[in-house]
Amino acid sequence: MHTELMNLYYKAEENYLSNVDIKVFRHHIESLQQRLSTYEFLRDHEIEIFQPVADALQKKYPTENPQTLEQVLRQAIALLRYAAMAMLLNNPEFLQHRLLEWLTEVVNAHQTQTLWSSCHELLSARLQEMLTAAEQDLILPLLDHAQATLVGLPAVVSVHA
């Protein structure tokens, strides 16, 4: 359950919600609808999103071991799945705990940060082509945050719940 909605339920324990609260409630419901449709889109277009990314990555690193590229792509696919769920739940911590805490050291040990940076750029560009501006606003900050965590840079984007 979304924390914002839970808070409203608690607030409504003894009286009707105020107009402001109703507005907030409506905002969250609308936002949830938008999140759900973005989630569905990402889920249904996984291959369509990633195939051009894979092709471009291979073109950019023609001498790189294909297994390493596949590994980075598989990790990127996992990242988008977890990021999509974090977006749906409106909970960036989900992405942090369920994937990034585990993946960061794996990427570090494999020394694939450069590949990751390229993959991130290609994926972001691909999503910008496929998603509306509002949808991009929901998912891209999570990916940017993940990228900063994975390559060990201080986060340039802050993600608000």
Binding site: I47, Q51, D55, Q58, R74, I77, Y82, H97, R98, L99
Partner: peptide
């Protein structure tokens, strides 16, 4: 040529099994 369809054939791509909130 890397086929993404092959990469996602296995529907589950594991993450952090021991994530405290899930574990």
């Amino acid at each position: 040529m890397i086929s993404v369809a092959d990469l996602v054939k296995d529907p589950i791509i594991p993450g952090n099994y021991y994530a405290a909130d899930a574990y």
